[in-house]
Amino acid sequence: MILDQMIFNKSENKGSFEEDKKSERPIRSVVKAISWRLIGTLDTLIISYFITQKISLAASIASLEVMTKMILYFFHERVWNNVKWGK
């Protein structure tokens, strides 16, 4: 879908979300990010439980993971914000 927009709609430079009805609204992106983070953390919890066989230890690992991944993602986004490629 994004590739189609880049190739076929190249002459139609759309400047904002309101003009581009094919884009997601920012709130949708936020909800998707939260739901994906919950799925990732649940995955970590399950894997940690299978390895350790202790729910308290698995929950500790998952709690730490959710915090570190949010921090890493923040810095990842800040670095990519400075990359001019694709803008």
Rank of each mutant, 00 (worst) to 15 (best):
S48T: 07
F75I: 12
G15P: 00
N81L: 07
L72I: 06
V66W: 02
M67N: 03
K10P: 00
K69C: 02
I2E: 09
S16R: 06
I7R: 10
Y73G: 14
L42F: 14
M1D: 11
I34K: 03
M67G: 09
S23K: 15
W80S: 04
E12M: 07
I71H: 02
S56P: 00
T52W: 03
R28E: 09
I7P: 00
A33K: 03
T68A: 09
A58P: 02
V66T: 15
G86P: 01
I27K: 06
Y49Q: 02
Y73V: 04
I34S: 04
S48G: 15
S11N: 13
E18V: 11
F75M: 04
V79K: 12
W85S: 11
D20P: 02
N9F: 11
D43R: 01
N81P: 00
E12K: 14
R28G: 02
V83E: 11
M67I: 15
E12H: 10
W80V: 03
R78A: 13
I39P: 00
S23V: 03
W80H: 15
L45N: 05
S56R: 05
L72T: 11
V31H: 03
K22L: 10
R78I: 11
M6H: 09
N82M: 08
D20Y: 02
T44M: 13
R25Y: 06
F50V: 11
G40Q: 12
A33R: 10
S56G: 02
L72C: 04
N82I: 05
E65R: 03
Q53R: 15
I47L: 13
W80Y: 11
K21V: 13
D20A: 15
N81S: 12
L3P: 00
R25H: 13
M1I: 09
A58K: 06
I39Y: 06
S56L: 11
G15F: 06
L42P: 01
L42R: 00
F75Y: 15
P26A: 09
I71Y: 05
D43N: 08
I39A: 15
T68G: 01
K14M: 12
K14R: 14
A58Q: 04
Q5G: 02
D4H: 12
K54H: 12
K21W: 03
K84G: 05
A59H: 01
Y73P: 00
S35E: 02
K22R: 08
S29M: 12
L42S: 15
T68Y: 08
W36I: 06
Q5K: 15
K84V: 07
L72F: 12
V30A: 10
I34Y: 09
S56H: 04
T41M: 07
G15Q: 10
I27Y: 11
G15R: 07
A58E: 05
M6F: 08
N9T: 07
E77P: 00
L45T: 05
W85Y: 14
Y73S: 12
I7L: 14
L3R: 12
N82E: 14
R78T: 06
I7D: 10
M6E: 13
Q53G: 05
R78G: 00
K14Q: 12
V31D: 01
K84Q: 09
W85L: 12
Q53T: 03
F50N: 05
D20G: 04
L38P: 01
L38D: 01
I46L: 15
L72R: 02
V83F: 10
